[in-house]
């Protein structure tokens, strides 16, 4: 059997597509979790299928450009095929209401992800734009800027307590209590929840999932205005912020930098 992999979002692949692929000797495997399994899936697949626009949480999303970047980086020879209920406009579009008679010829003639072409816009909510806003769209209030301000404050408090031996209560009264940590964190968390929801069907979804998983101890500490000395003293609060920052930087470098350079061409 010829192998395909891909993502259909919250809607199942239409039964007639699966039937059609099976009839012609193809198996469509769901996109696995975990980096190793994903690498294997990409290596064994002939093409990566995306059901466009991607439905997630009742929102239709345009994630095709993010997936193109991802495949370009990891398996440039792989074909990205966008399947949807629209008239195909390129050799990489699969019209679900007008399936090609010969899928083997179709997949062979589709362009590899590494070549210079851009997917037909699916009409969904532009996730490239969302990602740009996530990193820079609110100016000083970007997710990263807010995080950096919190980090500077915590770094200062950590230095006072650990390096200079200032009693925690004093540092709390002078630095942490006036900073309204719970309010700042509620704002950050609200925006994080909002954005993280959009990025569950994208190539870096697991990076965002990982951030969500490491947040709870820091969130509790912030909600309590930083009263508990342990998280700061042991460096855990700063470590969590650093992990988030490095994950953000990685995603920004790969997906935002790439997109911007494409737009500037």
């Amino acid at each position: 059997m010829r192998q395909l992999t891909g993502i259909s979002g919250d809607r199942p692949w239409p039964p007639h597509l699966l039937q059609y692929l099976t009839q012609h000797g193809y198996t469509l495997n769901p996109w696995p979790k975990g980096e190793e399994s994903q690498r294997e899936a990409l290596l064994s697949a002939e093409a990566f299928l995306l059901f466009v626009p991607l439905l997630h949480n009742d929102q239709y999303l345009a994630a095709e450009n993010l997936w193109k970047h991802y495949l370009e980086l990891h398996t440039p020879q792989l074909k990205l095929v966008c399947a949807g209920f629209r008239v195909g406009q390129s050799g990489n579009d699969l019209d679900l209401l007008d399936l090609p008679p010969d899928p083997v010829a179709f997949f062979e003639s589709a362009l590899p992800a590494g070549e210079y072409w851009w997917p037909t816009p699916s009409g969904g909510l532009d996730l490239n734009d969302k990602l740009r806003r996530f990193f820079a769209g609110h100016g000083n209030e970007s997710m990263l800027a807010l995080l950096n301000r919190l980090r500077m404050l915590l770094q200062l408090a950590h230095r006072e307590v650990v390096d200079l031996g200032v009693p925690y209560e004093e540092v709390y009264q002078d630095l942490l209590a006036p900073a309204s940590l719970s309010r700042k964190w509620a704002e950050w968390q609200s925006r994080w929840d909002n954005y993280a929801n959009y990025f569950q069907m994208v190539p870096f979804a697991e990076v965002f999932d990982q951030i969500t998983r490491i947040l709870p101890p820091l969130a509790r500490w912030m909600q309590e205005e930083g009263r508990d000395p342990d998280l700061l003293r042991q460096g855990k609060a700063l470590a969590i912020l650093d992990d988030i920052r490095s994950a953000f930087t990685k995603v920004e470098e790969i997906y935002v930098g790439k997109e911007l350079s494409h737009l500037n061409r």
């Binding site: 199942p12 239409p14 039964p15 007639h16 239709y60 209920f85 679900l96 209401l97």
Partner: peptide, 19 residues
């Protein structure tokens, strides 16, 4: 209207084996 179109064609999946 866009969402109605997408939701409609997703829902009629079982009928799409015919044109």
């Amino acid at each position: 209207i866009f969402e109605l179109k997408e939701d409609f064609f997703s829902a009629i999946g079982p009928l799409l084996s015919q044109p």
